[in-house]
Amino acid sequence: MDGFTALYIFMLAAFTGYEVISRVPVILHTPLMSGSNFVHGVVLVGAMVVLGHADPESPLQLAIGFVAVFLGAANAAGGYVVTERMLAMFNKGDKKKEGGA
């Protein structure tokens, strides 16, 4: 990927991120923060790739790679569980309303 293509991707992704949540109600601020926290858990994928290419003979490289994958996996799994639990709490109200109507 050459430098300028990457720059365009950066720019478009930044606008997308800004646009996607520009009209979010206050009640969703925290769940959305948690949700975006989960999304950057995709760092796991990058960590897997670097560990996969680490020199098997080098304990240092293996150790750093292991830490990267461990942290990335924790970010993804923890981020998901926490967001899901928060949003489940918000949903409770909706369900009751539907039931009552």
Binding site: M1, A6, I9, F10, A13, A14, F15, T16, G17, Y18, V20, I21, S22, V24, H29, L32, M33, S36, N37, V39, H40, V42, V43, V45, G46, V49, V50
Partner: peptide, 23 residues
């Protein structure tokens, strides 16, 4: 993501970076 040449990381990361700043 850019360092690794991995577009999934670039897009997800920058989208979160921008939306997180706004948030």
């Amino acid at each position: 993501g850019y360092v690794l040449g991995n577009p999934a990381l670039i897009v997800a990361g920058i989208v979160v970076g921008a939306s997180g700043t706004l948030l």
